[in-house]
Design a protein around this nucleic acid. Sequence first.
DNA 1: CATGAATGAGAGTTCATTCAT
DNA 2: GATGAATGAACTCTCATTCAT
Lengths: 223, 223, 223, 223
Amino acid sequence: MAPKVVDGRKLRAQRRRAATEAKLLFAAESVICRRGFHAATIADIVDEAQVARGTFYQYFDSREAVYRRLIGDFVKLLTSSVERVTERRAPVEDVRTNLLRVLEQLFAQRELAILLFRDALTPDPVLKQLHLDLHQHMHRMVCGLLRRGAQWGILREVEVEGTAWAVIGAIKELLLRRIDELPTLQTDEPVIDGTRITPAVRQSAVDAASVLVDAFYGGLRAP
Amino acid sequence: MAPKVVDGRKLRAQRRRAATEAKLLFAAESVICRRGFHAATIADIVDEAQVARGTFYQYFDSREAVYRRLIGDFVKLLTSSVERVTERRAPVEDVRTNLLRVLEQLFAQRELAILLFRDALTPDPVLKQLHLDLHQHMHRMVCGLLRRGAQWGILREVEVEGTAWAVIGAIKELLLRRIDELPTLQTDEPVIDGTRITPAVRQSAVDAASVLVDAFYGGLRAP
Amino acid sequence: MAPKVVDGRKLRAQRRRAATEAKLLFAAESVICRRGFHAATIADIVDEAQVARGTFYQYFDSREAVYRRLIGDFVKLLTSSVERVTERRAPVEDVRTNLLRVLEQLFAQRELAILLFRDALTPDPVLKQLHLDLHQHMHRMVCGLLRRGAQWGILREVEVEGTAWAVIGAIKELLLRRIDELPTLQTDEPVIDGTRITPAVRQSAVDAASVLVDAFYGGLRAP
Amino acid sequence: MAPKVVDGRKLRAQRRRAATEAKLLFAAESVICRRGFHAATIADIVDEAQVARGTFYQYFDSREAVYRRLIGDFVKLLTSSVERVTERRAPVEDVRTNLLRVLEQLFAQRELAILLFRDALTPDPVLKQLHLDLHQHMHRMVCGLLRRGAQWGILREVEVEGTAWAVIGAIKELLLRRIDELPTLQTDEPVIDGTRITPAVRQSAVDAASVLVDAFYGGLRAP
DNA sequence: CATGAATGAGAGTTCATTCAT
DNA sequence: GATGAATGAACTCTCATTCAT
């Protein structure tokens, strides 16, 4: 009856909820990674998460819902990382740095990246919208980069809109090509900044960024 | 007389077989396009083709088999069109022409192109192999183009292998972006040279090729 | 129009009919032998007989019909061979001779024998009846043998009805046990009396008869 | 308190599982008996058991699996009952007693006995092995009985191996003949010692044993 | 809240049978 | 009479979802 007791109970209950939800999300992600998007079943997920079948439906309305949540979160992460990129006034070296940052995120969560880039064009309208949103966002960002690059004189003039899509496609392809080569994240591996970006992941991102910058920018020069 | 009757009957039977098979292949293609690879069911296909469930299995051993056939045929088409590209000794303007030719094929059969570029990374080993084959083929071709471009002095030197994948990714993305904009082929639409390359398809290919050449080649100059 | 011509045509047509029917019956038998009763399909039979699917239905009303026919013919064959056994007034040695004759038939057509003894208790009422008929027939015969054996003083007195079933069961088991050991009939193998009774078949029958006579009769003595 | 609740729930769940499994096994048994092995479908079984289609697959991996389970259990039962038979040093009267015991089991579970004796020679390799195992076991046992019978002077000398198969065939035939005559076990019928051996079953076994002993042993005399 | 047994619509596939040619 | 393409009912099995405990 005392407010403190109630608060304590509520707090513990909330924590337990959050913990179970996290278990399910993590399990869903790793199952999708292992078995692929379409082959991932509820049974796989609840087995992986070590919870009962019914528990799943206490946290997510349907099979699609957990995918939506997973992707939504990832899109938010990418978007915010990209937001930080564009808000900085870019000196020359910035472009490479920022591209690297995005690629790091993509490589670090490569299961979701695959999901997003390879499988996401499903009939499910919500997933389609999320997919579209991310791509529009990336497109706007790349368009900005291309325009600013031209202004700074480090890029020649191109048809911006189409070229931006070409750049995005190039990123996606390089990502998918490198993904098989990267070792799977070990549970005891040191992670940087609480993210899943390990040294191996960073190196892959550096390589991919180099190729892209080389291909599209002809090599960036400090002014 | 007897042989003639038999021949006549056999001929008609063969034509009927071919017609039904074409109906099924066409239906499968359009169903996959509409509902996506994994959501396309036998029921959808036979409904679309207006034949009975069992008829499907007179022509294809399994659900996978029809996809293998569809993709295999398309890969052969692309491959052969690309073969012709690479065997010609290229003067400067050739690069643009040949790229255009490939893009025309991709846009003309855009349902299959989507299937191949978007969905093909499935657990099915045969499909995976077909997918891999095509990509290896495209990669070899693009590597060759990049190297010859450098020799002819119309391209700066780049890290060839990685850049080739970037180019392929760019082509795929442009393709997928344009596909929704293209109107679906009408049955009474004039087709060119017995292919499905219509004026609209050709225009799309020209646009995409321009963007790519612009982005990667910095504009091609006649020598 | 001349009766002779018509007769000739009719005759040839009849012969062709009979030939095709024989092809189908032979194919059905060998397919059942190879794949088992329940796994034998129409497709198997017409493939084996080298005729079209529809032709099958010109000769038999249904899948069951061909089995009925096959079994019916075999039952008739066995019955008639047994008939000859019982009609003869038996001196002592006769019992062994007659048993041998039945066993020879069973071993010679062992595919059908299996079909009859192992599989025939299907829900199909007609097959069930044929099966029952044959067993009743065999039972009556064996009862007769047992009674006459006792009269002739070469068999001790037993509960005739039950013992007769026991004898039949023993025959069936020995038959099934020997069947796997017998080599399949070769097409160029010398057959005896136009039947499928080869030397190997005859030897098997002799062996089985010996065991049975030994087990049930304690060795037959000439009076 | 918490553990008790959990235990209570787990216990009830386990009981429910066991009950449903029993329902399914019982249904499968009776369906197989009624419709035959090959004609018995999942639909039949779940209809009989009054559960949903999917429920079946929570308990058995496949259609074959339930047959394997059914047969495996029965073979174990028979084997153990036979084990007890052979381990006893047999005075004269023992042979009859032990034979009776086996026959009682066979008659009590006559549906399975039919399944085992009539249908088990299927292409399914596991079923075939189970069938073979049981027959080898029975054969060894009968061989032993025949040899000991000869040693004790209550049986004349015979070719043991072959005769043993004849005996087994005789048992099987008598069993199959009596099965139709026996009334189906009523659910409210008093069962003896928790088994399904009712007075009617016992009487049938006695009759069959008498026929066999009479036929093969010439009547057993107390020493 | 957590549980997991139960559900049933729907998937791919088989095959006896029909019928226009 | 012979053909073989077409048929569709029936089969086994899967899996997202529900609900009593």
